[in-house]
Every structure is written in C-alpha cells, then in structure tokens.
C-alpha cells in the first residue's frame, strides 16, 4: 500500500504527534502536579506508535527534527548561567566537590549494582557512564566495550529517573538547599534533570547546568583508571 506509506516517510506527522503529546502532557501537569510531562508525553507517543503499528525508525524521521532543537536550547542555558554567575562563582568549591563525589559514586555504583544483579559484562560496561550526557556517555561506553545504543537508552532513562524523582528523593533525605539540589540533579541526570529544574527555580537550573558541564569533563577522567582494570 504505497499510498499509506507516503506520509509516513515525511517528518510532519511525527512532529505534530510529539508536540501535541507534549502540549497535552503540560495540561495534565497543570491539573496533577506529580505528572511529569516528559514521561506522560513520551508514554502517549509510544502508545500511539503501538496502536498504529508504526515503527520507531519511521518515527525518528520527525523525532530527529525535534531533537535538533536541543542544541540551541542547551546553548540557551548560558542565560541562567550568566545571570547567576556571581553567586555561582562563590560556590565553585562545593559544586566541584559534589560533582566529583557524584562521578565516583556513579561509576562505582553502576559497576557494583550491575555485578550484584548478575548482568552481563557488556551491559555492565554500557551502564557505567550513564549519568553523564549522551554525547559523552555513548563514546565512553564504546571505548569500555559496552553497547553504545544501549548506553544511549540507559542514559535517557537515568535522566528521566533523576528528573522525575530527584528533588523528591533529596528532600526525603533532608537535602533541601537549592545549591545541593542543583548539583545533585545536574550530576545524576544531566540535561533531562536540568530541563525539569528550569520549571522549579532558575538558580537551581543554573547550578544544574554548570554541574552537568563539569561532569562531562570529570567523569571521563575518573573512568580512565578502568581501562587498566578491565
């Protein structure tokens, strides 16, 4: 049925469905505060693909167009960074120490948990760099001997977990200060976590943006010793 396949090959339907799902998810969030727009929006798109039996590869034609906007959006995080630069500078030692602690726990924790859970070494290596943004975690996984495609998925899921539950978990354990929340969410769940904090507080988001950038530099350095170990 070539007539039906024609529009599927274009990006328009996927862009429309994604933006509509996001808009609907925002409306839902306004009604129910605990609903995370990224989770509900993506779940709606996945349901749509399942019901219409359209493959993920066809969806990606339009999905990639939306992903492109991540570039200018990440650059735009420079605005909160600039606005809060005076205050950020005063907290550099705390931010740096937090990111370093987080990187170590992230590498060691993923290793430990994946071994304890009896996962294969390929999955284990794919899991180690998952807290740092995908542009860094995917090549790191490749060098370690992991599966890059799997690391991409695990990185996004890690971001989603931190973005959905990060601030709540931190508050549960008595971590309520804006600075600590920003450093923790940025280090544990990169851009996806930062994208959530943007809606909570601009100061938290600027700390998170700086932490995720520092993590891009620090995590690869801390992973270096692993090359001799494995």
């Amino acid at each position: 049925m070539p007539a039906i396949a024609d529009w599927i090959q274009g990006p328009e339907w996927a862009v429309a469905v994604t933006v509509a799902a996001y808009a609907a998810a925002l409306l839902l969030r306004n009604k129910f505060k605990w609903m995370h727009p990224l989770f509900t929006g993506a779940a709606a798109v996945i349901l749509f693909l399942t019901f219409t039996d359209i493959s993920y590869e066809d969806y990606r034609i339009g999905g990639d167009l939306i992903l492109f906007m991540l570039g200018p959006a990440t650059v735009a995080l420079g605005v909160p960074l600039y606005k809060h630069s005076q205050r950020l500078r005063r907290h550099i030692p705390g931010i740096l120490a937090g990111v370093m602690a987080g990187s170590v726990v992230s590498i060691a924790g993923a290793w430990l948990l994946a071994s304890v859970s009896g996962l294969s070494t390929a999955i284990l290596y794919s899991m180690i760099p998952k807290s740092v943004t995908a542009a860094v975690s995917v090549p790191l996984s490749e060098q370690l001997g992991g599966i890059p495609e799997l690391t991409a998925v695990l990185t996004v899921l890690t971001g989603l977990i931190g973005s959905m539950f990060g601030p709540m978990v931190l508050k549960l354990f008595g971590i309520r200060r804006d600075l600590a929340i920003g450093v923790a969410v940025g280090t544990a769940s990169h851009g996806i976590g930062t994208a959530r904090l943007v809606n909570d507080s601009e100061w938290q988001a600027s700390v998170s943006a700086l932490s995720m950038s520092l993590s891009c530099i620090i995590t690869p350095i801390f992973i270096l010793p692993l090359y001799w170990l494995i």
Binding site: Y22, I66, A134, L150, I192
Partner: peptide, 22 residues
C-alpha cells in the same frame, strides 16, 4: 527554549522503547 526543553528530549524518551532489543 529553556522553558520547553523537555519537549526537545521527548523523542529520546520515545527511543527507550528499543531497550528490549539489547
């Protein structure tokens, strides 16, 4: 762009449905 940053991550989250392949 910052306010709607989550929208730009949405296709990535949809992409996690390929997890079962690996």
């Amino acid at each position: 762009l910052i306010r709607h940053m989550m929208l730009f991550f949405l296709p990535y989250v949809v992409g996690t449905l390929v997890l079962s392949r690996y």
